[in-house]
Nucleic acid binder design. Structure first.
Lengths: 189, 189
DNA sequence: GTCTATACGGTGATAGAC
DNA sequence: GTCTATCACCGTATAGAC
């Protein structure tokens, strides 16, 4: 129940979201977290790769729960997904386009960098996709269709976040929200 | 018409696609391009940021033309977009999931790193989006709707590439291709 | 558990000879 | 145009005192 340990993970998660893996330095984490410098390798013998993996896993769980609770608030899947995406848009805007897509940069970096991080990212996306698919199945979509639609939802959100942060405008996220809403309004198959 | 200059840009483009900006070192570019080490700052006084910007602009044009020619081959927009995405899937697979989304990583890194790179990425996405939107307008969609749909197409492709590379499977790209095809089959509004 | 100091490699960039 | 040498800096990681 070390508070220091948690602080490191929490700070790492934030920096990974805004900067990515390579750009996030140990010194910066120590500085911003206020954690004692000497304790980093005490808590995480595996170094940068280890606490980054833990940071990803933590974020994975948090977002998964956010997806579930958000989708549970509205019965119609099209409106539920729309509302969820607009929440993300708000998050991106209020962060001044510094946040959003907490593991996207790391996921791309990990492909050529770290098998361990890559695996953590893979599991994270699976987790999120399952959360969306479950809602769609409950709404009457077949398992197969729900899986495809969930992939589209995750993919388009991730991509729209890239576009929104790059353009410093949440318009891409709003467009995606509107179009996905239309697609999900069709009769479930 | 310097061949050396072009080699540097070409190599930079490839490395930026697979590794991103921060991970791509000057030494690596010199080594893989076969360019004389001393000529890097001769051709690009602005250093890393400068030739990276040129690499992005070059890729932007190439992909734009690939979008246009690919979409021109098939009249129906739903089938045309599907075919284009499946071509990307092939590209991602044959690269062993090392390539795809040539500027995605750089775009995310640029938000907190380089105003110049950020601008280049912004223009690139605009260029690609316009290419899709034009095809949709020709197919009977309104300007406004075409713009939204183009944003969804770009976003979902970008995101699906992230998922596909992370999962070492082109399934996400295939799912997105199938679902976008369905969405575009609806009567143009 | 935490501190300080340090090792060691790599980075982008520059200088000056040729 | 190109080469070589070198710069100052930053990164991760480790050692050893306390």
């Amino acid at each position: 129940m070390s508070s220091t340990r948690d602080e490191i993970i929490e700070t790492a998660a934030e920096l990974l979201e805004t900067q990515g893996y390579r750009a996030t330095g140990l010194n910066q984490i120590v500085e911003e977290s206020g954690a004692p410098k000497g304790s980093l390798y005490y808590y995480f013998p595996g170094g940068k790769e280890e606490f980054s993996t833990e940071a990803i896993n933590k974020v994975a769980q948090e977002i998964k729960e956010r997806i579930e609770t958000s989708l549970a608030e509205i019965e119609d899947p099209d409106e539920a997904v729309e509302a969820f995406i607009l929440r993300i848009a708000h998050h991106v805007r209020t962060s001044n386009f510094l946040k959003g897509g907490p593991i996207t940069t790391v996921a791309l970096e990990a492909v050529t960098t770290s098998e361990r991080l890559n695996e953590a990212c893979r599991e994270t996306y699976d987790l999120w996709q399952s959360a969306f698919a479950e809602k769609l199945v409950q709404s009457g979509f077949s398992q197969a269709r729900a899986k495809r639609l969930a992939a589209l939802i995750i993919a388009s959100i991730e991509g729209a976040i890239v576009l929104s942060r790059t353009n410093r405008s949440v318009a891409p996220l709003e467009y995606v929200a509107a179009e996905l809403k239309l697609l999900l309004q069709t009769t479930p198959e």
